[in-house]
Simulated scan of single mutants.
Amino acid sequence: MMTNLFSIFDPSTNMFNLSLNWLSTLLCFIFMPYNFWMIPNRFLVFWNLIMNKLHNEFKTLMGNNSQGSTFIFISLFTFILFNNFLGLFPYIFTSTSHLILSLSMSLPLWLAFMLFGWMNNTQQMFYHMIPQGTPNILMPFMVLIETISNIIRPGTLAVRLTANMIAGHLLMTLLSNTGTNIPSYFIFILMFIQILLIILESAVAIIQSYVISILSTLYSSEVN
């Protein structure tokens, strides 16, 4: 029996007293090799088209210093997108709705960007602290504000992904729990609303993976 509404985001799936919740995150590594040996079909052609568009867009954002770094962000986009869609299936653990996973992706990326920037482009990193045209009296405040905004970047990336994934799942759960307490002629209306919410969540899954990868690319372009 569910005693806490938020326990739906951490179900007790286990076998031989081993927690199997996070194994759903590893399913992407099972489906990935299919692209290398499957006969090309419409889905693979469409997916390759999306990857090429993302590669060109990331390369434009990063400039001439990309040097293959765009594949890191394409892999990040693919991983988040797969896990977001996987969470829409019933009885499957939504790993992207947990700060443990989202922080484990955003924090190492941010640390790598900061270390690379301060070790190789120290002068440029100082330039980012003070925007051009800032009055002398406001320079200490701008340095403080820019430092704080830079430090909280991995947290904002993680919370953005987690909050958006939790909000939709929580709303669908609340509506589905009311199905036993409403008259039968309202069931069809409830089913229609749930279908609309699933479509909305599918769009959110795509948008959030795109936003996270784009913001990571922009953060990377600042240190080059």
Rank of each mutant, 00 (worst) to 15 (best):
N83Q: 11
I50L: 13
F58A: 06
D10L: 05
P140L: 05
P90F: 00
F73N: 09
T217C: 09
N150F: 11
S213L: 14
Y127F: 09
F126S: 02
I145G: 04
M32F: 14
T25S: 15
T134K: 10
F16S: 10
L215Y: 13
G87P: 02
E57A: 10
F188Q: 09
T162F: 02
L101D: 01
A163M: 08
W118K: 11
T3D: 02
L157S: 07
Y185T: 07
P90I: 00
I30Q: 09
N41G: 15
F85D: 02
T96G: 04
L161C: 06
P11Y: 05
G63F: 01
F9K: 09
I137S: 13
Q124H: 07
S104L: 03
M15D: 06
N65H: 15
E57M: 14
P140I: 10
I212F: 15
S209P: 04
P90N: 14
M1C: 11
F43W: 12
L18Y: 09
T156V: 10
S75Q: 09
G133H: 08
V143D: 04
L115S: 03
L101G: 00
F186W: 13
D10K: 03
I207F: 14
E57L: 13
N21S: 11
V45E: 05
L107T: 00
S66G: 00
H128C: 06
T156F: 06
L197S: 01
S75G: 11
S95D: 00
F71Y: 02
L76H: 04
V143E: 08
L49C: 11
F93S: 00
L111F: 11
T162A: 02
M32Q: 11
I187H: 10
K53V: 07
L81R: 07
N14Y: 12
I39T: 05
S213W: 07
Y127T: 05
T162G: 00
G168E: 10
L171Y: 09
N4C: 06
T3F: 04
L99M: 12
A163E: 12
H169S: 07
M105H: 15
S104C: 04
M172K: 11
F126I: 08
E222N: 14
L86W: 02
F73T: 01
